[in-house]
Amino acid sequence: MNALNGSILLAVMALPTIITVAEDAIYAVPNAYKEGSYALGANRWVTLIKVTLPSCASGIIAAVMLGLGRAIGETMTVLMATGNALSMPNSFFDSIRTVTATIAIELGEVPYGTTHYYSLFALGAVLFILTLIINLIAERIASNYRKKDNKCQHTSTY
């Protein structure tokens, strides 16, 4: 029951998002780039490192940002895995309580209309703005990238 535990679980949960979006980005790299590289005598590994990945770097960054947004907003996993201690963590091995878990724990027992109630909504607002900024940045990066290559139409919202 510590931060590391929750981090590993969130990492696993963010994997599908990162993999599918990044894969779309890599697919969208025009074949001509790779063929040009092969024609110059590069093998597949060199082509991947020097040509394919640099040309879709922004798409991969967008994928990572989207995965990050998912991880920040995840509630039940951290609620069950990080211990929820209300104290300042000093290391990865301390028990922590995230914003999402705080809302989940306290909203059930707080009386309607009190300061406590509204402060939970304030926490929600902070969380919302945080994920909104991350998503907007990811979207900006991905859309810049989409304009460059029209092939990348299928960047899904999942």
Binding site: I72, G73, I103, L107, F128, T131, I134, N135, E139
Partner: peptide
């Protein structure tokens, strides 16, 4: 709509309560 898909589920819970 795209950003709505990225809103954490607990925020929906808060909204539902309110």
């Amino acid at each position: 709509i795209r950003n709505l898909a990225g809103v954490p589920s607990i925020i929906y819970g808060l909204f539902g309560v309110a």
